[in-house]
Nucleic acid binder design. Structure first.
Lengths: 115, 115
DNA sequence: CTGTATCCTTGGCGATACTG
DNA sequence: CAGTATCGCCAAGGATACAG
């Protein structure tokens, strides 16, 4: 039996198209919703959690961390007790809003048409 | 040791927001690219494959099948030999184009800004 | 309130070879 | 040309309990 050769993932897509670049940013689960609910004003962790039902805290934390790392949102801690944490869109985050809006528009159309 | 109770997945998200509805349509890998390259004219299987480098035929076929099932594109077979198959956007598919364009626009901005 | 810590599952994606 | 057939994988996502 021959040795199972471990596949080598593609190392570097020499150039990445804008579409792919952007989709990577808003690809993860819950990402578009987070941006959507932050589009007009900052919100706190628990507010976002109830804005977006069905997500577990672990997953949600991970998502927010990733978005922060991507420079899409920023996290501000109020040193109160109990602590309050406020998330808001960065400039980059705001640039994504039109795309989200376009998606929402189509979604509305679909819902209207299909119920 | 207590019996491991099998988790019960959420049965029915009582209502799905437009954002989620739409994101499910264009969520899969390569989906936005397919729509993008079909936006102005029909294209054939192999044309799309070379438009979108790096995708394997199996995955690509599955993707196209799913998009057809979703009513986003339609498939037309020319009974020639060798066969030629043409994919084109449906009306629903065309409705998605503005969203894709918005995403592409952001992606372009990002690329310009960051290289 | 805002998260970590554990543990688990799955299906989406990929490589490669082959076919009508 | 336009796909199937196999095989494989692992990371993203989730449930639940606990912590500062």
């Amino acid at each position: 039996m021959p040795i199972k050769r471990r596949k080598s993932k593609v190392v570097s897509p020499p150039e990445e198209c804008p579409l792919t670049v952007c989709m990577r940013l808003l690809g993860g689960a819950w990402t578009p919703n987070v941006i959507w609910y932050l589009r007009s004003e900052p919100r706190r962790f628990s507010e976002l959690m109830s804005d977006i039902p069905g997500v577990s805290p672990k997953v949600f934390t991970a998502r927010l961390k990733k978005l922060e790392a991507d420079g899409i949102l920023s996290r501000r801690v109020e040193p109160t007790s109990p602590p309050t944490v406020e998330y808001s869109l960065t400039d980059l985050g705001h640039e994504l809003v039109p795309a989200i809006e376009a998606i929402v528009n189509v979604g509305c159309k679909l819902k209207r048409r299909r119920g």
